[in-house]
Simulated assay, not measured.
Amino acid sequence: MWCIPPEQSAAFVAAMEAVLCLYALAYDPALPVVCMDEQPKQLIGETRRRFTDSTGRRIEDHEYVRHGTCNLWMFTEPLAGWRDVRTSRRRTAADWAHQIQALVDAPRYESATRIRLVCDNLNTHRIASLYEAFEAAEARRIAERIELVHTPAHGSWLNIAECELSVLSRQCLGRRIDTIQEIDREARAWAAARNQSQRGVHWQFTADDARIKLLSLYPRIAA
């Protein structure tokens, strides 16, 4: 289990149960639950062209060339079987703010009252980041359309978007890719295919389960 100091256990449990109770709610198009996560990806090129040997095995040279990095942004609505993947050169507070602006302005959510956004505890995932990127009126407009629900420290595994990023990496990006344009094309095609097949997520771990399986993380209450 995780090394969580006793003085932080109550905060961990509170944040964990907030996320788990959110996942247990019924689907509501006016208050959709969207999970977001981000992941850096190295841009790696080949020094020699890959080839196939006489047995049909793909041969790849161990030497490669680094072309920097890019960042993948994953947004997924588990109950709707929808996800969107975007790429950027950086992962600053302003970059996050622009991704959130694109989310709230997406036609998909134009009739939503508020988007309940599950994200981890990175210091850029804050309402303050909106004010760093936009004028106050625009930052307030975006802030009023989202409700941030942070996973606890050491608890990013509670974020369903992290699961989607893992699937993306294994199914689509598990090889050397040297340009951000190719990564963007591959990721968008992957997301479109999964959306077309309505690949949802059936989350089964509940707050009641946590009180049994993670009992050691809960603070001890003196009688």
Rank of each mutant, 00 (worst) to 15 (best):
A112N: 03
D84M: 10
C3Q: 14
G45A: 06
T113F: 01
A192C: 08
S156H: 10
R211G: 07
R50Q: 12
D178L: 02
V65A: 04
F205T: 03
T55D: 11
L25E: 13
W157K: 09
R145W: 00
V149I: 13
L173P: 01
L122C: 11
R211V: 09
A10V: 14
M1C: 12
H154Y: 15
P107A: 08
S166R: 14
F51I: 07
R170P: 05
E144I: 01
N195S: 07
R89Y: 11
F205K: 05
A207Y: 05
W203S: 06
P5H: 15
T124M: 02
L122F: 14
T69K: 14
S54R: 11
W73T: 01
M16K: 07
C119G: 05
V33F: 00
H67P: 05
L20H: 09
R58D: 12
V34E: 01
P6T: 15
H67D: 08
C70N: 06
Q42V: 03
S111W: 09
E46D: 13
D95V: 14
A11I: 13
A94L: 11
Q181C: 08
T206W: 02
F75M: 12
G155Q: 06
S129P: 08
A192L: 12
V19N: 01
R170G: 08
R175D: 04
A102C: 14
H125Y: 02
V118K: 00
P6E: 13
N71S: 15
G56L: 06
I221R: 09
H62S: 10
E144G: 04
E138S: 05
S129M: 06
T206G: 04
L130R: 00
D120K: 06
A191P: 13
P107R: 12
T52G: 02
P219Q: 08
V167P: 01
S169P: 01
T55M: 10
N71Q: 15
M74V: 10
